[in-house]
Design a protein around this nucleic acid. Structure first.
Length: 346
DNA sequence: AACGCGGGGGG
DNA sequence: CCCCCAGCGTT
């Protein structure tokens, strides 16, 4: 049997010696902890750090978020992905202002009722910012626990998540719950890694049943496989008088509210100059974008959602990542070089 | 329970 | 290049 008292002691000792220095660990401000946990959903630490600093310098308090416009918030979120996160965070900030008198609730049960906070994020904020002894099971912790308890079934079903939630709740340190949860996550990201876990360095290797049996890297098990599709799109750069044509993505589209160069599926190509493809992933679809430069008179009236935007104003609009990449290539002249290289090959 | 939602990175 | 990673809301 695994003794919670021993696990806590070993894990927290390891954490005190090996914890990562992360910006959101330098504060006890619940707003900052909350913001960081929203940004960290499905997103790596390295990606989040610059967004975290930029966001806080513009919106230092939850009140400033509640009073902000969604366009200003989207601008700081551009490139981070999962744009519904910032919409939900905006709504949650307004609800805290209106229903909680501006004070963030402190329990997991209350937090989970706010938009954008599920079992993980509510547990993380409650334990890290408010010292509540509750679990916060993310993907890293599923991996650690599936190995610790040698869980050989599919680890991503509803029942399995319930199992890990119960295990985590009984393990969590009642004195330092936030540190305990973050220690499990740090362990998962730096020692108990997906493909080559460093069991020799693991503070829990004495307890770990998968380590004892010898094949920890085979856990956790995921039975449902992702299906990948490939699409090719044409990205159109309509130019006239130093201005670009942009369209705003509708609320019902992915990346809603962001601006982009108009896209067309491959097929009937407009005549024009082929430039370089931009590779990009939208969830399980690999998108290759071929930017074109075309005569504006032929297409200008086609899309009444679009508007003429001065290049000077581009930086004030939340742009899709594809658009930012194409724009960067356009600004740096990289497209021109590529064009000649491609023509030379033919 | 299944699906939609981005972007980064490893092999 | 192909594939992996993984919280929350909606259906």
């Amino acid at each position: 049997m695994i003794s919670p008292v021993s696990v806590r002691k070993q894990l927290l000792e390891w954490y005190d010696a090996n914890k990562r220095d992360l910006p959101w660990r330098e504060t006890s401000d619940p707003y900052r902890v909350w913001l960081s946990e929203i940004m960290l959903q499905q997103t790596t630490v390295e990606t989040v750090i610059p967004y975290y600093h930029k966001f806080l310098s513009r919106f230092p308090t939850l009140k400033s978020v509640a009073e902000a416009s969604i366009d200003d918030l989207l601008l700081l979120w551009q490139g981070l992905g999962y744009y519904n996160r910032i919409r939900q965070f905006h709504r949650a900030a307004q609800r805290v202002a209106n229903e909680w008198g501006g004070i963030i609730p402190t329990t997991k049960e209350e937090l989970i009722r706010l938009p954008g906070l599920g079992p993980y994020t509510a547990g993380a904020v409650a334990s890290i910012a408010f010292g509540q002894p509750v679990s916060a099971v993310d993907g890293n912790i599923i991996r650690v626990l599936s190995r610790l308890f040698h869980f050989t079934e599919d680890a991503f079903t509803t029942q399995a998540k319930k199992y890990f939630g119960e295990k985590a709740s009984s393990l969590v340190d009642p004195v330092r719950p936030g540190d305990f949860n973050q220690a499990l996550m740090d362990l998962g990201s730096s020692v108990c890694t997906p493909t080559r876990p460093a069991c020799l360095l693991c503070p829990l290797n004495n307890f770990c049943q998968a380590c004892r049996k010898g094949k920890p890297e085979t856990l956790p098990i995921r039975l449902k496989k992702t299906v990948y599709r490939k699409e090719e799109l044409i990205c159109l750069l309509y130019l006239r008088g130093g201005k670009f044509w942009l369209r705003r993505r509708r609320p019902d589209e992915i990346m809603a509210g962001l601006w982009e160069f108009p896209l067309r599926r491959q097929g009937r190509r407009p005549y024009g100059l082929q430039l370089a493809p931009v590779s990009h992933t939208i969830m399980n679809r690999r998108i290759t974008v071929h930017p074109y430069k075309v005569e504006v008179s032929k297409f200008a009236e086609k899309d009444d959602e679009g508007r003429w935007i001065r290049p000077d104003n581009l930086h004030e609009l939340p742009l899709t990542t594809i658009t930012r990449k194409v724009l960067h290539q356009y600004d740096t002249g990289w497209l021109q070089d590529t064009k000649y290289a491609k023509e030379g090959k033919k």
